Amino acid sequence: MSLLPVFPSFTSLAELAPLPPLPLALDLPTLAWAGLALTLAYTLFALLGFGTALIASPPLASVLPVAQVIPLLALLDFAGAASRAWRARRNIATAELRRLLPGMLAGQTLGIMLLVQLPAPLMAGLLGSFVVVQGWRGLLAAQPEATAPGAAPAQRAIWPALCGGLLGGLFGSGGFMYASYLERQLADRQAFRATQAVLIALSTAWRIALCVVAGSLDRALLLTALLLSPSLLLGHWLAARIDAGLNRQRLRQLLNLLLLLAGSLLIWRHLPL
């Protein structure tokens, strides 16, 4: 049986978000602002394993065409996550990866189908509210005991995998669901980051493939990603310096504070005027 009917029309996707022309040479103030936003986003990403779309999207959308922001972040996210996953491949928790991957792929497929069905402001408001609730729950809950990889029931991974994939397909920002799950499951921080990097790399690769099919990637966007790639490197360098003084409890607090901030910004940005 063909699976093609379950996917939305890529022609309708391109019509839904027509791409305005992007200049090949961005002015210095625009590059500086975008670079600053991305440096902050990738510092947090290197520490927590998520956060680039949630943190970088609002400032980037103020200086770049909105239709270009998600493909741009997907390119940079994939480069950073794939590189990190390859360097830390010996630390990947394969048991947790196998539990999360099927749900993530199913959730991404559902998210892409809903993308062309539901109004974006409504979904953004719901996402923001959901993220804020997750952040508050994490801050108010007692610190959980980490378990060894594979010790928890496999069913525990279904909810974060499906929701993370769904939110990633809709908004490019579902990594916090995987991070929240893995942070509880993996006591080894290197295993946490390596496994999260693989999930982000696979998720963004899927989104890049869809952008290619939908015609959302062009030479101008690739050049923009290349010009802004130093911000990715700088963010990872800063994270390596910060990480030395960041214990597990502080990492967990930072993760949940980031959820509160990102969710609040998303709600505020889509409030009706």
Results as ranks from 00 to 15, higher is better:
5 P>N: 01
7 F>Q: 01
9 S>Y: 01
9 S>M: 11
10 F>H: 11
19 L>M: 14
20 P>C: 05
21 P>S: 14
23 P>H: 07
24 L>N: 10
26 L>G: 06
27 D>E: 13
30 T>E: 02
32 A>H: 05
33 W>G: 03
37 A>L: 00
39 T>M: 11
40 L>E: 00
42 Y>S: 05
43 T>Q: 03
46 A>I: 06
47 L>H: 08
48 L>G: 02
48 L>F: 08
49 G>C: 12
49 G>L: 07
50 F>E: 04
51 G>R: 05
51 G>W: 08
51 G>S: 05
52 T>D: 00
67 A>F: 07
70 I>D: 00
71 P>V: 06
75 L>N: 00
76 L>T: 03
82 A>V: 08
86 W>E: 04
92 I>N: 02
93 A>Y: 00
93 A>Q: 02
96 E>T: 10
101 L>R: 04
103 G>Q: 01
103 G>S: 09
104 M>K: 05
109 T>V: 15
109 T>C: 09
111 G>K: 10
114 L>D: 09
118 L>Y: 04
121 P>Y: 12
131 V>P: 01
137 R>Y: 08
139 L>S: 06
143 Q>T: 15
144 P>I: 11
147 T>M: 08
147 T>G: 14
148 A>V: 09
148 A>L: 15
150 G>E: 10
152 A>G: 07
153 P>Y: 12
154 A>S: 15
157 A>T: 12
160 P>L: 06
161 A>W: 01
163 C>M: 15
171 F>Y: 10
172 G>T: 07
175 G>C: 06
178 Y>K: 03
178 Y>N: 10
180 S>N: 12
189 R>L: 00
192 F>E: 13
193 R>T: 12
195 T>D: 04
197 A>W: 00
199 L>V: 08
202 L>I: 11
203 S>L: 08
214 A>R: 04
215 G>W: 01
217 L>C: 13
218 D>I: 14
219 R>F: 15
220 A>R: 10
223 L>V: 12
225 A>T: 13
227 L>W: 13
229 S>Q: 09
231 S>Y: 06
238 L>R: 06
238 L>P: 00
239 A>T: 10
242 I>Y: 15
246 L>S: 06
246 L>Y: 03
248 R>M: 02
248 R>S: 13
251 L>E: 01
256 N>M: 07
257 L>F: 15
260 L>Q: 05
266 L>V: 12
268 W>H: 08
269 R>K: 14
269 R>Y: 00
270 H>A: 01
273 L>C: 04
